[in-house]
Simulated assay, not measured.
Amino acid sequence: GIDLGTANSLVYMPKQGIVLNEPSVVAVDVEDNRVLAVGHEAREMIGRTPEGLRAVKPIRDGVIADYRMTEALIKCLIRQVSPRLRFSGPECLISVPAAITSTEKRAVIEVAENVGGKHAYVAKEPVLAALGAGVSIEVPSGSMVVDIGGGTTEVGVVALGGIVSYTSARVAGDRLTEAIVEYLKKEYGLAVGEQTGETLKQELGSALPVEEETREIHGREAVSGLPKHVVISSEEITLAMQNELKEIVQTIKNVLQDTPPELASDIIEKGITVTGGGAQVRHIDDLIARSTGVPCSVAEEPVFCVSYGTGVMLQGLEKYKRALSQGK
């Protein structure tokens, strides 16, 4: 099972659990387009590559933006776990955004088959996230899952083994990070890299105001280009992310408004489950509950829910066939 994410790609193997968790980054030699590094090694090169090298993120907004680099990424993932396989040509199940087009879906299946997958299947992230969070999706009662990943926020209402209503918004963890980087540039004239923005989001980020914490950060003065450091507070990070958080909340409201009344009453009773890396932003569940009037909770191990969901589905392919698309 492969959770092919914008930020990270994870591999789940039945009876073994998550065996690989690598950043979705590929480093290439510009001159001959040769792949030099994948995953953690390639991620360390972001913002530090010398002339002639390029660090590429082949998955953008949850879908393939660079076919060849995605092929290299999946090939590397399968190669790294291949010593654990007792057979060649594994069955692969790959997560995709709920709003994926048939062309994008076909591209994912082709990549998996080209790198040696015996049979390739794709399943939509809200269904996988629900399964991984322990939500029963086969029952006639509705459940809502909000999966806040790196590139997209997937919101889906699942019942009877499939998705009843859903939407996929291109605002998620990466946009929150970008908002922090942009805030520092605008307010302090400080240019920082993506990794600094990500660290600030993880350490100081909160969807609602919290007791103030501060961090000293280093970057480059935008005008002079000289090194500069400033002290930033948790209140400022919360403020920097507000517009993006409002977009995420509005996406959830849109799906609730499109949900049939009977299922809506089920959701009010059960509450909303939040998964994905974005679920780690402090008080995101409180913000959603306060904004929608529906109880909300963060799943256990939210980052791994989609991966765990691929494992559940692989062990019951016949049972969940309504939620699957497959290749040849």
Rank of each mutant, 00 (worst) to 15 (best):
A99T: 14
V192D: 00
Q202A: 14
E44W: 03
K328L: 07
E187L: 12
I18C: 03
Y188L: 09
V28D: 00
I268F: 07
S9G: 09
V30G: 07
S102K: 14
G205L: 11
L263D: 01
T259C: 14
V96W: 02
A323P: 06
G161D: 04
E236G: 02
R220K: 14
T6L: 09
P97G: 06
K321G: 08
G156C: 13
R43N: 04
E187M: 14
V111K: 00
Q280D: 07
V181M: 11
A129P: 02
L204Y: 09
G156S: 08
L131F: 08
D266L: 06
S165H: 14
T292M: 05
R282C: 04
Q257H: 12
K328V: 02
V139F: 13
G327Q: 07
L208S: 07
G309R: 04
H40G: 00
G149Q: 03
E41T: 02
Q202E: 11
V63A: 12
I163A: 07
E244A: 05
E154C: 09
G62T: 03
E41C: 01
L77Q: 04
A7Y: 11
S95H: 04
S95A: 15
E113M: 13
T259E: 14
V306Y: 02
F304S: 05
K253H: 07
V63Q: 06
S24R: 00
L160S: 13
V223D: 09
R322C: 11
G117P: 05
C92M: 15
H283P: 01
I288L: 02
E244K: 02
T199Y: 09
L128I: 10
D66I: 03
A179D: 08
R48P: 02
P58I: 00
G39E: 00
H283A: 06
I267Y: 10
A123V: 11
L20D: 06
E113S: 15
Q202V: 12
R68D: 09
T273F: 03
G149N: 06
R84D: 10
I232K: 00
I252R: 05
E104G: 14
L131V: 08
T177I: 06
V35P: 01
P260C: 08
A7H: 10
C92T: 05
V171P: 01
K75V: 03
G278P: 01
L263M: 09
S291G: 10
V115K: 10
L184R: 02
L4Q: 12
T259Y: 13
G142D: 07
G225K: 04
N243V: 11
Q16R: 15
A222H: 04
I59R: 01
E236I: 01
E113Q: 15
Q326H: 15
G39S: 04
R48V: 06
S136G: 06
V281G: 00
S95V: 06
E110L: 15
D174E: 11
G149K: 01
Y188K: 09
S165I: 14
